[in-house]
Design a protein around this nucleic acid. Structure first.
Lengths: 148, 148
DNA sequence: TATTGTTATACTCTATAACTATA
DNA sequence: TATAGTTATAGAGTATAACAATA
């Protein structure tokens, strides 16, 4: 199947193919744990931001609060995460439970192995360059861009 | 929201974020055309491989033949693509119709603009490096790896 | 036996819109 | 008025399992 110059000329296309490659392998590495790479990311974010609320978690994952809620439901149903009373009566404070810590550690080991295998043809120097170039993607900041 | 070293250490995570960034912008650029980036890719593949069958198209897109069929249904319903008799009585030969050619050209213009904007902070040299590094992702080839 | 297209069905992920209870 | 969580519903995208026709 020919993939003409048109397709290959898009950086977005190449990034998409690279993502599919990486995610497929990570997903296979996590198969035993019955959680997707995105759900592992959620566990990491909750661990590193204990007491965060669902909306903030969703923002970090680029999903809305309704989707974030479904995600937290799944993690809570599995006994990995807990909803505690938050900073006011509207918000939950999300906490990683001991079972979540244990499972996350096993998942991290598996995904680190996957990530290492998929990047083994790149030197440490090249990986640094790749990170730098990926971080530079996105529209140029406007002169009067403001943070929220 | 803190994103600890664990998360940033995964190349897969960085590639996923980059892909989300690029795809979201491309999708917005295509909003007028009512087709996703993946469907535009399908149109390009059919244009550049006239007479290909659905299974081959699916392989190129990394989806199975049932999913490829749904995709072709959508493109055919819109009058962009045609199923002609194929090389034997089992297979279709997919062809881009004139309306498909016209729409694809408009979509390419829009996505080229999006891609250029999202990569404007990288020099031509850096883009070449990025392509090279992305292409190097994946497991190391086994000594006795064979093509199919 | 293997392959292509097809159909029916189901699952994952995400979104929107509306509601509630707070703030 | 605005925000957090929630609920119901819907859509996109993909997969599996089976079947018919053909190779």
């Amino acid at each position: 199947m020919k993939q003409g110059a048109d397709l290959q000329s898009f950086v977005g296309y190449r990034v998409q193919r690279a993502n599919l490659l990486m995610e497929t392998d990570a997903r296979a590495a996590l198969a035993d744990h019955d959680l997707s790479p995105a759900k592992m990311t959620a566990l990491i974010l909750i661990r590193d931001n204990p007491g965060c609320d669902q909306t903030a978690l969703g923002r970090a994952l680029s999903i809305n609060r309704s989707s974030a809620m479904k995600l937290v439901n799944i993690l809570a149903d599995k006994g990995l995460v807990e909803r505690r009373p938050g900073r006011d009566l509207r918000t939950n404070a999300l906490m990683l439970l001991p079972a979540g810590t244990r499972q996350l550690e096993a998942m991290l080991a598996a995904v680190r192995q996957s990530d290492a295998r998929m990047t083994q043809r790149l030197s440490a120097e090249e990986l640094k360059t790749l990170h730098m170039l990926l971080a530079r993607l996105g529209p140029a900041p406007m002169p009067d861009d403001e943070e929220d």
